[in-house]
Simulated scan of single mutants.
Amino acid sequence: MIEAHPLVAMIHAVPTGARVAQEAFAREFPQATVWNVLDDRLLDDARDAGGVTDVLRRRMLRLIGHVMDGGAHGLLLTCSSYGDVVDTARTLWGVPVLKSDEALFQAALAGPFERIAVVASTRPAVPAAVAQLEALVPAVRPHRPLDIVTALSEAAADAGTPEATARHLADALATVGAADADVVLLAQYSLAPACDALAELLDVPVLDGAGAAARELRGLLLPDAGQTVPVPAVAP
């Protein structure tokens, strides 16, 4: 048995996403001992390859294996582009493994929104986010109408300030006719600093996933105050 300070690993693809996730865990799950692993070539290599290839999936699985061997009690992948690797990881390790925006998407689908816009600054994040949303629909809102629209602004990735990032994202949403969506979901943690500025520009709710993920893992690992967390089973 261990103390009620579970070791939560986070695998990041960009330093900005790492900072956002750390701030969210400090706020929402301060009991956690956080272990950060950064591979800052994951997105560039996926972009150069035209998507997440089998080679890159195996690379992510090796990173996941690394933190599991190190005793992680839970894992969050903060890079949405590699979300489908989580499905494989869940069959290999008996600890909670979360996709970056899984908790966010569940909350958005459970809400009153009928037109949901997903915006990103890196191309692989768009289909990854839509696939997660659509996979959750049958369980969360099977009988309510839903329209998912997407926008991409690669210029937002290089913007110098949250305000500039927000303007790029707003322009991308307007270009595809998505600025009138009921809610906007940020498909990457690295965009979270622009959340408030984008909401002000669009006058609609804008949601990000880091805080939702921290709360989800807190609930899974510490469901009751004072309880211990089981030692994880490590795949051979």
Rank of each mutant, 00 (worst) to 15 (best):
M1G: 14
P6A: 07
M10D: 00
H12Q: 13
T16M: 15
Q22N: 14
A24Y: 01
F25R: 03
Q31D: 14
N36T: 06
D40T: 12
L42I: 06
A46R: 05
D48C: 13
D48M: 14
G51E: 13
G51N: 11
L56R: 04
R57F: 10
R57N: 12
R58N: 13
V67Y: 02
V67E: 07
D69K: 14
G70M: 11
G74S: 04
T78P: 02
C79D: 07
S80R: 00
S81V: 02
V85T: 04
V85M: 08
D87C: 08
A89N: 09
W93D: 04
G94Q: 14
K99I: 02
D101P: 00
A103R: 02
L104C: 02
A110S: 11
R115K: 14
I116Q: 00
A117R: 01
A117C: 11
V118D: 01
P124K: 01
Q132T: 02
E134H: 03
R141K: 08
H143I: 06
R144K: 13
D147F: 09
V149F: 07
T150W: 04
A151G: 04
A151V: 01
S153W: 04
E154H: 13
D158P: 12
A170I: 06
L173C: 13
L173F: 11
G177K: 11
A181L: 06
A181C: 09
V183K: 10
L186N: 06
Q188D: 09
S190Q: 07
L191S: 03
A194D: 01
A199S: 12
L201D: 10
D208L: 00
A210C: 08
A210D: 04
A212G: 07
A212R: 00
A212C: 07
A213G: 09
R215V: 08
E216M: 07
G219P: 08
G219C: 13
L222S: 04
G226M: 10
T228F: 14
T228P: 13
V229C: 05
V229A: 04
P230L: 10
P230T: 09
P232Q: 07
